[in-house]
Amino acid sequence: MSQELPSLVKKVRPLDFGAHIVGAHFIGASCAFATGEGEVLIAGEHEAHVKPHAGTILNAAGDGERIFTAGDDGRLVATDIEGEMEVIAEARNKWIDQVALGPDGAVAWSAGRSVFAGTKKGERCWEAPSTPGGIAFAPKGFRLAIAHYNGASLWFPSADARPEFLEWKGSHLGARFSPDGRFLVTLMQEPALHGWRLSDSQHMRMSGYPSRVRSIDFTHDGDWLATSGAQEVVLWPFRTRDGPMGKPPRMIAPAAKEQKVTCVSCHPKQPAMAAGYSDGAVLLIRLEDGAEILVSAAGGSPVSALAWRGDGMALAFGTESGKAGLLAL
């Protein structure tokens, strides 16, 4: 990256939590950071430090009001802006690996091979064929995608029907629906993504990455899927009926030499995104022309978390070594 980039570095409030930042989610005007030491650290207008888990936080999700953390202590805990904690679920002798939040206060989590989906009305459980690598709610309706070995399953927790199985060989480690619900994309153990057009289960292979893709996000309009794993942010076109099939991806915002993109997060309202890199750098990128603004300079550990506030007026980032930052725009 060149030295002449426009910079917002001075506007960033630097934070250092001294522990691997697993996830970041805004709660109101503040941001909750979940760490590998089992803590939830709230910074911004509110400040609170709590420790909902005895061990490591493996996964976190936020609904704008609370942060939900899944831990290797077998607990799923929701923490609000005051640091008030509620235990949502407990699994005996098991890690709670995954958590996802859906429409109307729905929450889903997995412990071992068991996937649970809870609403105000009650809780349903489904045994996946292997331990889920990721779970995600569809944007509308009470429907879950579960990524596991050799494919993904689509489950309607309120129906008794068997989940629909989408087959693709390999280990699937994360799942994401497109904002319009037409496509499902999974992150694979191999350096590739896989996707299905749900209307006809048509396959979409997105490969060519030099390393495993760990972070993906759709743009606010669903036109593009931004992905990590390469030296540049790779954007797959999803605007048309066929999605990215037969189309080359766009590549923007290259990393410094021998570095790669580790984390991506799209702006909730504008055609813009944030990207984090393996050298700790964070950039804001305009999608139209790939113009970059520096948010955090290189010289740290890999960026492991990025989050936009719902109104798009603030960005939070965190790294594996615990350095983090808050930027108000």
């Binding site: 522990a19 691997h20 061990g55 290797d72 331990t131 153990q189």
Partner: peptide, 17 residues
């Protein structure tokens, strides 16, 4: 062949370095 559960578990363990 690979042990997927080990990838997941070691990934989790390595978060508390």
């Amino acid at each position: 062949t690979v042990r997927g559960d080990l990838i997941r578990i070691i990934d989790g363990l390595l978060k508390r370095k």
